[in-house]
Structure formats: C-alpha cells, structure tokens
Amino acid sequence: MNDPVLVVQGLTVYRGAHPAVQEVSFTVPAGTDTAIIGPNGAGKSTLIQAVLGILPRQAGQVSVLGHPLSAKGYLPAAVRQQIAYLPQNFLLDRRIPITVSELVGLGWDRVGPQLPWVGGRVRHQAVRAALTQVEAWRLRDQLVSSLSGGETKRVLLAYCLVRPRLLLILDEAPAGLDALGESEFYQLLHQLKREQGWAILQISHDLEMVRQSCDRVLCMNRTLLCQGAPDHALSPEQLSLAYGSDFVRYRHTCQLPHHHDY
C-alpha cells in the first residue's frame, strides 16, 4: 500500500450540542480515490471541513503528509500547498469582478505576504497550462460569474491543478450539474487523477460512479459504519446500515432489469 497522505484518528466534531461526527478513523493512501457516502445529515461535509481545519474538532487527530493539523487548524504552508479543496456549492457572488484566469491564479499563489507582481510570468504560464489542460483557455478573460455550471467546474479543476498537489478534497463537486455534465466532470477528474497522481477524498451520492472509479469507500452516518473496497462497502448489507433497508430494497428493484450484482 502507498504511504498515507491523510490519516484521521478518532475524529469527533460537534455541531452545537450534538456530535455530527463521532470517533471516525481512516487513512487515504497516496494516489488513491476514496469516496465518502452516506445519507443527508450524516456528517460527511462536517468531516471534510474538520479535516481541512475549517471547523474545529472536539477530539481526535488529523495528519496530512505526516504533519499534524493543530487544534486551531494550522498546517505548514508547504503542506497546505499540496491540498486543493472544492466546496459543495461554489456560489460566487455575481457582483464580484473576477476573471477566470484571476481565479485560477489564486490556486497557484502561496499563502503569506508577497508583492502582488511576484511570479508574474511563471504564474501566467501555470494558469495557461492548467486552463489548457481542462480545455478552458478560451474562457480565461470571462467573468467567473458568467460561466455555466459545467464551465465553472472545469475552471475549478484548473484551480486545483495549476500547481502540483498530492491531495484533492471534493465535497460533492459535481452538484448542480445535469447527468451529462456530471459524467463529463468525472471523466475529466479521473483523467487528471491518472496524470497528476492525486489522492482524492470525495463526498459522493453517485454510488455507481463510486463503484466503478473509487479505490476505497467510507460509509458513514455520524460515525463510520464501514470502510473498504467498493464491492464490500456497497454491498446491500452495508448500505442498509447507512441508508436503511427500504433504500436498498428500492435500489435493488430499480436495478433488477440491468442484471447488476446486487
């Protein structure tokens, strides 16, 4: 097994007085694609935000590339550079004047004080390469607020790959896209993953995509119910733990004509 990029041990996160995530432990090995599945309100987004230090945790340890995430969410800048995060809903205020190339450039910048013109040419070349890779260079001068949902997702992927990364964290990244857009997004994501060698931790409700493309699955409902290879974690027994037996029965009924394996 590859070295772990992310190690989470006994993570507990409270939302108000109640635990939204309780005693969750898992690892994400380098270059692998791990999916988090579970019903709405299961604490999936909370888990990811605590892993990134966006939300405070009440217990447990998080370690990224061997560096522990401090209680206040601090990670060394060099480690942060290796992480890219795409939120569930990238709802940009349409009144904010920012072009596609400016947004992608923000993914290249290092955190900390620096003169605004530092790295101008290198930065521009990196932005150009990233946008070209996702076939969005033609959009470079457009306002981000004028993009379609699919174009926005492409640009956000360019934001991730404008600098070499080791860990990509996606919170239902294709949310809001239609079936075709979602399919194109995943196709591009998996192509880039192969090329870049990213480790991916993603929340998804698309169980078929998870079955076909992911290496590992974490099934959770506040606490971790199961984890393992897709065949194991997506078995009817495991899914009924997270979603309930009605969901599994309904899913089974829908899939019978297609001769799926459960």
Binding site: A77, I83, A84, Y85, F90, I96, Q114
Partner: peptide, 19 residues
C-alpha cells in the same frame, strides 16, 4: 496580502483550506 484578501472575499472555506 492581495491574493489572500481576494480568496477570502470569494470563498472563506476555500481560503481557510489554502491556509
């Protein structure tokens, strides 16, 4: 801090994730 200020204005969680 221009780049950080822009990212913070655009999307606070993404800014935190970037450090």
């Amino acid at each position: 801090t221009l780049r950080s200020q822009i990212l913070l204005t655009l999307h606070e969680p993404m800014a935190i994730a970037r450090g």
